[in-house]
Design a protein around this nucleic acid. Sequence first.
DNA 1: TCTGGGGTCCTAGGACCC
DNA 2: TCTGGGGTCCTAGGACCC
Length: 420
Amino acid sequence: MYALVDCNNFFVSCERAFQPELEGRPVVVLSNNDGCVVARSNESKALGVPMGTPFFKVKYLVDQGKLVVRSSNYTLYGDLSARVMSLLAEVAPKLEVYSIDEAFMNMDGVRREELVPVCSALIKKIRRWTGIPVSIGIAETKTLGKVANHFAKKYKGYRGVCMIDSEEKMLKALSLTPIGDVWGIGWRGAPKLEAQGVKTALDFVGRPIEWVRERMGIMGVRTWSELQGIRMVEEEKEEKRKSICTSRSFANMLTDLDELSLRVSDFAGKCAEKLRKDGTAAATVGVFVHTNRFREDLAQYFPNASVRLDVPANSTPEIVGAALRALRMVYRPGFEYKRAGVIVADIVDAGSIQQTLFGFDSDTRSRDDRISKVMDLVNTSGRNVLRLAMQREGHYSDGIRREFCSGLYTTSWDGLIQIR
DNA sequence: TCTGGGGTCCTAGGACCC
DNA sequence: TCTGGGGTCCTAGGACCC
């Protein structure tokens, strides 16, 4: 069986863990730049605050004292996530961390009658040791585990754990699950299915496999099978990332190439850091810039370009250099840019880099690698203390709006220095 | 005035091969 | 006037997830 552990209203719960006065109140956490609502407490859901809504649309509730708001504090959330995951790892024979607030525990080897008691004890322990409330759904497939988890969250009677372990429970659960709530059916797919009379997960599994394949391809068939207890979503192997993206929206729009270059250099430097941390190197460095898509009165421009390196690299000077070349390929004066980002791809293991036969400057490469190594040793606070002249001083996220940010209760800026 | 960020996988179509 | 058939690989875009 799989046990899907999902932290309840995770970002809000992290804020509450250190500000207990927020308990019981409507709270929302905002995205970067205080842009959108990305997490809501049950009370703010009840208040009717939609997920993803721009903050300015609900700001009046804050002004009226009806809603509490926090800027996102990913350093804090990442640290608390690691603590929760470490408690799961003590219990689960195999643990697959799926996202910052979710993990699949493969419970093979745990006796069926032990599953619910083990999970109940785990919920209590996580709450006491980290302050984070979690819910657990248990079933034979990951997709059914998701369904079970919804029930564990929705109905108090389950006390946080719901197990689907019989055909009868499965059919009951599917009949109560709207098709749009199924894992793998997105906001585009749900209306299409509903238009064809498929309102619930039970309606969906009642359709023939050919019907599903024709309309939804093999992804649809996978979901269709998983909902019936047939395992189709494989265990993820611990593989390294295949692409890495660092991007930000700016608090104010930028027009100048030099300004953009500074930001892109920071993003590229961060990508290089992430590559080195993963022990990988990239052969493609891409850059994109966006104008403000919400400003219909302004000219729009959403270009991207990428540069191919002859030999995969992970040094800051090389990745930044390539990103700046790509930026110059896309930059046009006369636009107001709201967002930019760097994507590195074609990632290989740093230990097995294929060199080119001709024209590879191994002296420069080894110099850049040594420079990067020293930067990693010095920049342990998450800030650019040692940096290229093309990079800004400080943190690559500096300059974004965070008007309602709580403290770094457990870490330094990037969580690299832990308080023991 | 103000609207996030980081991933994965699949598919269709074009380029290219013989 | 008449103009084949069968593959693979790459890429961009779409859909999905959190």
